[in-house]
Nucleic acid binder design. Structure first.
Lengths: 248, 248
DNA sequence: AAATATTCTGCAATATTTCGCAAAATATCG
DNA sequence: CGATATTTTGCGAAATATTGCAGAATATTT
């Protein structure tokens, strides 16, 4: 058996089980624990996992607790949020748009996730205040009662100062040619700046938002790097894949 | 079971329950209480929780700080808030400092109160989002987990732009000669600007805060127009009345 | 002050990691 | 092709880490 096959097996097992044990791997791969240890060592060196006594755990936080990971929610938003979690890693700076999708994501944040969050959403700030380690920056401004987010010039100014790794965008409407659009001019402006201030943009969009358009433009469809959706196999997502956007 | 799994379980349980007991954890995780204790010790060392006798509590906000403070002196605070209400009239613009006293005041706002509120407090914004007519402006910035308020340069910049009718100040310490003082430099700075940006300043201070002083200055005692307190007849309030400040 | 619960301490049992090394497998070169 | 490096692998011994336990010390409650 090639070494690469072992490494591949280890990473795959890690992805499904969220942990690997040296004793198990030694048995699975029919090699000594020393060899497994050296394999884990090399994977740890390239940052693909974290080696711990007795085995290894993923570098990125675990989507669900080790105990109750059995209960998979059917809920679309929850489903999307779980997929989005994989993009988060310690040390990152994240912009979080308002909306229920992003709020669901925030609720899944594991306690040991060390990131900085910039957001204009009041519910997200309330939720993250409970989090033990995440640093939260709220973009000031007039609070919209419907959207429960801050808006206006001050919000935009603060966002312009940010260089984030990822922007998670809650989506109103998504269209292959019209791009991302919204119902309110002010909110669309804020979202635009969020996209511009992040290195990468990940849109959270249920499939029913796809192929629709609203009056105010947020960004071009090609500004999106990834679309997280509840069902990436539907025909309505095809146009986005063809544009080279990752859809999961 | 890997140690990391135990740590993960503990942190998650802490996040949902706001406390963990060693006896429970020992049972949940099927390890001895000694091991649980050592796990908690290591988590405490990395600042992820606070170890207390018999278990652990979140670093912040924990039952012994904010959530407890809000119950502490609840009647006094309510009493003060009711007195403070008389200063509010339709059309005013109000600056609201963070803290439990001002939060209590906000909870008493009648539904037909048409005012604008500028605040740096997350709980106050959450509360006021529910209000049918009040316009809320949140001052952006880094959110402090203990105080649940925004702080820093952005907060100060936004406050400097404001011309408010009244600033309601939550008080840490009040002293006839030292003036209003606070425990944290950043928070004191923010309060200073609040006072400077309002035409009138009303302090909300329980009598036990009077005659005490902390390291960082907020403003002179003469910058206060009114002190709202739980018991204006106590001798400890006399010095302030003599200085010409209204005490009710 | 006694009773109870919790924490600390040293220690032994066990599990894991590290290390040096030799055998095996693989790659390299004339 | 054959001889020689180089890398990979497995193994045993020593070093280290983790765990549970008993009993002393300490804190908390009644």
């Amino acid at each position: 058996m090639l070494k690469e096959e072992r490494l591949d097996y280890i990473l795959r097992k890690l992805q499904t089980d969220h942990k690997v044990l040296q004793t198990e791997l030694s048995n699975d791969l029919q090699v000594s624990e020393d060899t497994v240890r050296r394999d884990l060592e090399s994977l740890a060196q390239t940052g693909q996992l974290i080696k711990v006594r007795g085995g290894a755990i993923p570098h990125s936080p675990n989507p669900y607790s080790f105990k109750d990971r059995i209960k998979h929610h059917q809920d679309d938003k929850r489903n999307m949020a779980e997929k989005a979690l994989q993009f988060l890693h310690n040390g990152q700076t994240i912009i979080l748009d308002g909306g229920t999708s992003t709020l669901t994501l925030v609720k899944l944040f594991p306690p040991n996730l060390h990131i900085k969050v910039i957001t204009n959403s009041v519910p997200i700030v309330s939720q993250l205040i409970e989090h033990p380690v995440i640093e939260v920056v709220f973009t000031g401004g007039l609070i919209g009662k419907d959207s429960q987010t801050a808006g206006g010039l001050d919000t935009i100014r603060m966002l312009e100062k940010v260089r984030a790794d990822i922007c998670f965008l809650g989506i109103c409407s998504l269209h292959p040619t019209a791009g991302v659009t919204g119902l309110e001019l002010g909110e669309a402006d804020v979202k635009s700046v969020m996209v511009a201030s992040a290195y990468k943009t990940i849109a959270l969009s249920t499939t029913d938002k796809m192929g629709t358009a609203e009056p105010f433009k947020v960004c071009n469809i090609t500004d999106l790097d990834t679309i997280v959706t509840d069902n990436p196999d539907l025909p309505s997502v095809k146009p986005y894949i063809n544009l080279g956007i990752q859809v999961i």
